[in-house]
Amino acid sequence: MQLYNTLSAKEREELIEKAGKDRLTISFYTYAHIKNTEIFRNHLFIHWNEMEVLGRIYVAHEGINAQLSVPAENFEVFKNHLDSITFLENVRLNIAIEQNNKSFLKLKVKIRHKIVADGLNDDTFDVTNKGIHVGAEKFNELIEDPDTVLVDMRNHYESEIGHFKNAITPDVDTFRDSLDIIEEDLADHKEDKKLVMYCTGGIRCEKASAYYKHKGFKQVYQLEGGIIEYTRQVNSKNLENKFLGKNFVFDHRRGERISEDVIANCHQCGNPCDTHVNCANEACHLLFIQCEACATKMNNCCSDNCKEIHELPFEEQKKLRKGKHASNKIFKKGRSEVLKFKKSQ
């Protein structure tokens, strides 16, 4: 019984190109009580592998968080399979605004302690006692209210390329970091202000809304379905779009254009740019913003040192990496000292 990938990303890419079939990039999550995560994980892999589903799925005792790609022709079969699972029946599916057949190239279903790393002790509060979910129209009304505080629950490299007008965008590296900062900054407004939160697809806000209610906030709201669903509703209902720039996504696309505004800059030359790339030096792989001119000049690398290494023969690069741990710069997205125009820490 096959429970893991047998094809490399390159082999899968070639198969996708050869097939010439459209694929849909989808994300969804739900909090639920899953007793045997290993059995559930294997069940998903077996069935989804048969449907040619690709993606990154996290399973934990608290639920499931999935970003994936499925052949368009298999969508109904995939949806029927979800509906056959009690706690996934009619789960909201966020379908990407911009489609890319190569958004994912492997199927990875992994067991995790939590579906989102948050560093919280969930035993101290009820994660199901969440805030009020609002759609795009109500969200637009709320954020125009002077008694509303709008908070971006994403990390700095996400909000750097796109965020809602007038949103508080904490300069943090992790979701957990933002929780205490926001509580401290809004400590005097737990009763008189409406706390409205948003994130990519809603999963972080779901946990945060329960956490802030536990911390004494009386009026807690979250954008239902996150930026992805907001954009769909804005387009389908012809609403005013209050989001500026790109929505960062966690697949090979790295971003979806929501508005024509470019609010970020190239980390190497400072010119307007909102294209995230990974340093071509495999020993670095730093995520940063790079314009086309700098990509050409730097051979898709973040620094002169990485450029020199990347231009070495492949076998020499492997020798340099041998026995060394991966650079922690990959976890400090956009924070490297080599980036002259990086976002401030």
Rank of each mutant, 00 (worst) to 15 (best):
E191C: 06
W48F: 14
V59Y: 04
K237I: 04
H252A: 15
L44F: 05
I85Q: 06
K242P: 03
H285Q: 15
E76M: 09
E308N: 14
N140V: 05
V220I: 10
S336L: 06
G201T: 10
I289A: 03
E144D: 11
D122N: 11
E11A: 15
A280N: 11
Q268R: 15
P146D: 11
S344D: 13
H163S: 12
F250Q: 02
L142P: 00
T275V: 12
D261Y: 07
E308C: 09
S159L: 10
D123L: 11
N300V: 03
I143M: 15
A66F: 00
F331C: 02
E206I: 06
E13I: 05
H81F: 14
V59N: 02
K108A: 02
K21E: 15
A295H: 05
P71Q: 04
F341M: 00
H113N: 14
D185R: 12
L312I: 04
C266K: 00
L312P: 06
G226Y: 09
D118Q: 02
V249D: 02
H214Y: 15
S303K: 08
A167H: 00
F217Q: 05
F175P: 06
R23P: 03
Y4M: 11
E160H: 07
K242W: 02
V338M: 11
E183R: 14
Y198L: 00
D261W: 08
R335K: 15
I309D: 03
C199E: 04
H156W: 09
G323D: 02
A293D: 13
V77F: 07
M197D: 01
K35I: 13
K324E: 12
K342P: 01
D304M: 05
V77P: 01
P146I: 10
N49D: 13
L244I: 11
A326Q: 15
A96K: 01
H285N: 14
N155P: 05
T296G: 13
K343N: 13
I161K: 01
Y157R: 09
K297Q: 14
C294Q: 10
D83G: 05
E89G: 05
P71R: 04
Q67L: 04
A19S: 13
I228L: 13
N328R: 07
E311C: 10
S327W: 01
H61W: 03
D173S: 12
D118W: 04
Y230N: 04
V70N: 05
Y212A: 07
E282G: 06
L186Q: 10
F87V: 04
